[in-house]
Simulated scan of single mutants.
Amino acid sequence: MNSYDITLLPGDGIGPEVTQSVHAVMEVLQQRFPVRFNIDIKAVGGEAIDKFGEPLPQETIDSCLNSDAVFLGAVGGPKWENKGVYESPEWGLLKLRETLKVFSNIRPLSIYEDLNQFSPLKNDLIQGVEMVIVRELTGGIYFGNKHRSDLYAVDQCTYTENEIIRVTKVACELAMKRKRRLVSVDKANVLETSKLWREVVTRYVTEAFPQIHLEHQLIDSCAMHLVSNPRQFDVILTENMFGDILSDISGALSGSLGMLPSSSIGHKYALFEPVHGSAPNIKGKGIANPYASLLSLEMMLRWLGESKIADHLARAIKQAIQDKCFSKDLDKNSHFSTTDITLSVTSNILSI
């Protein structure tokens, strides 16, 4: 029996609700398969600020560094909006990514046919859409030097050649397993960091992965194409802020950000989390969409090498969607709660 140490970080807003769903599904997977999850629950974000006075306490860091994988719910909320940049819940997440050295964020998008009705795009545009966005995660403007006065503010964006190469390698390895098509997104007509990005990506792909068809698009053009012709994309590679923007746009294709999972991968550690954020407006109402978290759990299982279990979980999730277990962010008339959807998935795990 394989045994894994998992650090679970519920966080803020609906984070505790969706991670509770993940916890419940892991418990059932242990019943169905010869696997053991040793779960250590720790504080992060606003919850950690309230308990420890900082968004990423040392005991949380220690647990994450000693785990086989880390699962995060969400951070942030209006309660902590007046905190300084380095005392905010979001800084706890940024610091966690930096501590774990998870430099590549992988955000897959698959369109479930049963959810086509909830997309704002026409069916003929989203039919068969299957893509992955690879976002550089520990560089760029989010991590650059920051300064603020009454009259001006500065956010510095920097990238090094090595930072660009290592995330490009991840994107290329994914592309080689797919259709061997890679679109690199930048703003090279304006930004010096983007000019470097384009030069390094071009050189690296040409030399290391000549089998891959490489195309460059500007961020504004790519955003337009993402909603006008999404089937053209297979693997999208881009820097930190642009990846944040494009992956949220891709959420519209599926009908809701509540359907988008993600993994953040480094050379040693991995962090898994839904894309949707803390959604404080629906906290405690029992209507949070757990699908993104459960799909992130599927990604975690694959990263751990448990592909058989991951495949089974994917089938269980698909069956729940086919049974029209829709959350309210997808269907405002739905009567299914977070718990209802979780029970549907766990039932499917035991029965299929």
Score class of each variant (00 low, 15 high):
Arg148Thr: 15
Asp186Glu: 12
Glu161Pro: 03
Asn162Thr: 14
Thr138Asn: 13
Asp124Gly: 00
Leu174Pro: 06
Gly140Leu: 01
Gly77His: 02
Ser110Phe: 15
Ile61Asn: 04
Pro78Glu: 09
Ser88Val: 09
Pro78Gly: 03
Ile106Tyr: 04
Leu121Ala: 10
Leu65Val: 08
Phe71Met: 13
Gln127Cys: 11
Lys79Gln: 14
Ser184Asp: 11
Trp80Thr: 01
Asn66Glu: 09
Ser88Leu: 06
Leu100Phe: 04
Leu151Arg: 10
Ser63Thr: 06
Leu96His: 02
Glu98Leu: 09
Trp80Cys: 06
Lys177Ala: 09
Ser119His: 07
Val70Leu: 05
Glu87Ser: 15
Phe71Thr: 07
Arg178His: 08
Leu109Lys: 01
Lys83Arg: 15
Gly92Cys: 10
Lys79Trp: 06
Ala74Gly: 01
Thr138Glu: 12
Gln58Asp: 12
Glu161Cys: 03
Lys146Tyr: 15
Lys146Arg: 15
Ser119Asp: 08
Leu100Pro: 04
Pro89Gly: 05
Leu115Gly: 04
Ile165Leu: 05
Asp150Asn: 15
Ser119Ala: 09
Leu196Cys: 01
Ile141Trp: 01
Thr160Arg: 12
Asp155Lys: 08
Gln127Asp: 15
Val190Asp: 02
Ala175Phe: 00
Asn82Met: 12
Val201Cys: 07
His147Glu: 14
Pro78Leu: 10
Gly84Ser: 15
Val190Trp: 02
Asp124Arg: 08
Leu93Met: 14
Gly139Ile: 03
Ile164His: 06
Glu59Ser: 13
Asn116Ala: 09
Leu125Asn: 01
Arg181Ala: 07
Leu125Met: 10
Val170Ala: 05
Leu151Val: 07
Gln58Val: 12
Ile141Gly: 03
Asp186Lys: 04
Ser194Asn: 10
Lys177Trp: 08
Leu174Asp: 04
Phe143Asn: 04
Asp155Glu: 15
Leu109Tyr: 02
Glu113Cys: 10
Glu98Arg: 13
Ser104Cys: 12
Asn189Gly: 14
Phe71Gln: 01
Glu90Thr: 12
Leu125Glu: 00
Lys179Thr: 09
Pro108Cys: 10
Ser184Asn: 05
Cys64Tyr: 04
Ala74Leu: 06
Gln58Arg: 11
Ser110Leu: 13
Pro78Asn: 08
Val75His: 03
Val183Gly: 03
Gly139Ser: 14
His147Cys: 08
Ser119Met: 11
Met176Gln: 13
Asp186Asn: 11
Val75Ile: 11
Leu96Trp: 02
Ile111Asp: 00
Ala175Tyr: 02
Leu93Arg: 03
Leu196Gly: 02
Phe103Ala: 05
Val154Leu: 13
Val200Tyr: 08
Thr138Ile: 14
Leu65Ala: 07
Glu81Met: 14
Asn116Gly: 08
Gln117Thr: 12
Gly77Asn: 06
Asn105Trp: 05
Arg181Thr: 11
Glu161Arg: 12
Thr60Gly: 03
Thr193Ile: 13
Thr138Cys: 13
Val70Pro: 05
Ala171Ser: 08
Glu90Lys: 08
Gln156Trp: 11
Val170His: 01
Val154Cys: 06
Glu173Thr: 00
Glu136Asn: 10
Ser184Lys: 06
Phe118Asp: 04
Gly144Ile: 05
Leu115Pro: 05
Met131Val: 06
Val190Cys: 09
Phe71Gly: 01
Gly92Lys: 01
Phe118Asn: 00
Arg180Lys: 15
Asp155Ser: 12
